[in-house]
Design a protein around this nucleic acid. Structure first.
Lengths: 216, 216
DNA sequence: ACGACGATAGGTCGCCCGGCCCATGATCGC
DNA sequence: GCGATCATGGGCCGGGCGACCTATCGTCGT
């Protein structure tokens, strides 16, 4: 499975936000939330037992500020600060504490996801002007797919999409794609190899996990 | 599939929150987010073309308050107000506008999910004291499962959980559960019938959709 | 113009899967 | 205690599935 999955820890006292974000990040193929805490001190404790590449930290939390925890944890901990109010003063505080990124909660999810990938790769978003920052985020917009999944052909993706919505029989797949059953089996064999699975059940699960199946 | 799926519309200017919550609600077996907007007026427009049983509305949004939109939409629109700051004054404003529920964003996801089910069933959470409210929420804590899924036995659920994480071969299932391959096939046959599917691939997909498979 | 690759398709083979019959204890509700 | 339900297990059988090998025809890129 996911070889270089980015492990993420979330610290936010608004559970609805933290749990929602957790779900959203876990739905991405290359990030996994390994912990959700609701205060700065809790973050420090959690990190000591559960390593994470990137932390998403709310700047304003009761019972232990996020900023002071980032300072305590040091620069080796890659932190991205999020805030409800995107003020320059907060941006400044985040920078001084050693955060690698600062975002308003008003930004779209894809932006945060790009930032997580950029920060996990060793970049910092704090000392860049707006254009540089946008360019860097843009270059990390695509989810790092599993080596196998990245090499899937268009036809193989079509088969996977159908598989993921429950079209599992060879003859049904053939009917839907207007090709022979034999060709379906050939494509499936390629998919199995590329995804490192051994049957269509596992392939369907991987397809769902990778977000290849689109509608819901 | 999901017969009485509750359609939910989300109005919140914090995209990170809205998108995360959207993911989280879609992951539940009985709710589906049909729209995400970032202002009051946009909510009114969206609802006119896309019906929804319940709306989650942020009380504080730039460019059109959520409260005034709820007033405009009228009582037939079932709205649950969420806020970052859970003050009595905001609670009061939400009640006067005709909202069916009011929550801080600090509440856990399960609470909001219970509230959505309660409100979708016609209840209002506003004119209850704390104890009554908690009791009502408690009674809606369980997701409404599909008729088939509800009648699954414990052992059948175990098999489904394994299936959903990629343990698809009969002999592997048998090994994991310390039973014979024949018994595995018997259980699977029951599962197929109850979920109205015809093979383990479709069963695994249903299991994921129903939230029977737990972690990832 | 040639080679790489993808989409199409066929054959064969062994094994697994799903459908349908049945049987035995254990447990629980009434 | 008696029936219902559940978990366990067996046998049988036909067809589907996955593995391996080969082949033709486009469409690229160079």
């Amino acid at each position: 499975m996911g070889a270089q999955m980015i492990r993420v820890m979330i610290a936010d006292d608004h559970q609805l936000f933290a749990e929602g974000l957790s779900q959203a990040l876990n739905a991405l193929p290359d990030t996994r939330v390994v912990g959700v805490v609701s205060s700065g001190p809790a973050l420090e404790v959690a990190l000591s037992s559960q390593p994470a590449e990137v932390c998403i930290v709310d700047i304003e939390m009761p019972g232990g500020d996020g900023i002071s925890s980032i300072k305590t944890l040091g620069f080796k901990t890659k932190a991205i600060v999020v805030s409800m109010h995107a003020g320059d003063d907060q941006n400044q505080r985040a920078r001084e504490a050693g955060a690698r990124g600062f975002f308003s909660k008003a930004v779209p999810l894809v932006t945060l996801a790009s930032a997580i990938r950029a920060v996990a790769s060793g970049h910092s978003l704090m000392d860049l002007d707006e254009e540089q920052r946008d360019d860097l985020l843009e270059s990390f917009r695509e989810a790092q797919l599993d080596p196998g999944a990245a090499s899937l052909t268009a036809r193989e993706r079509e088969i996977l999409q159908l598989l993921a919505i429950g079209v599992s029989a060879t003859d049904e797949l053939a009917d839907r794609l207007y090709i022979s059953q034999k060709t379906v089996k050939n494509h499936l064999a390629s998919v199995f190899q590329k995804l490192a699975v051994s049957d269509r059940t596992q392939a369907a699960i991987e397809a769902i996990r990778l977000g290849i199946a689109k509608p819901h």
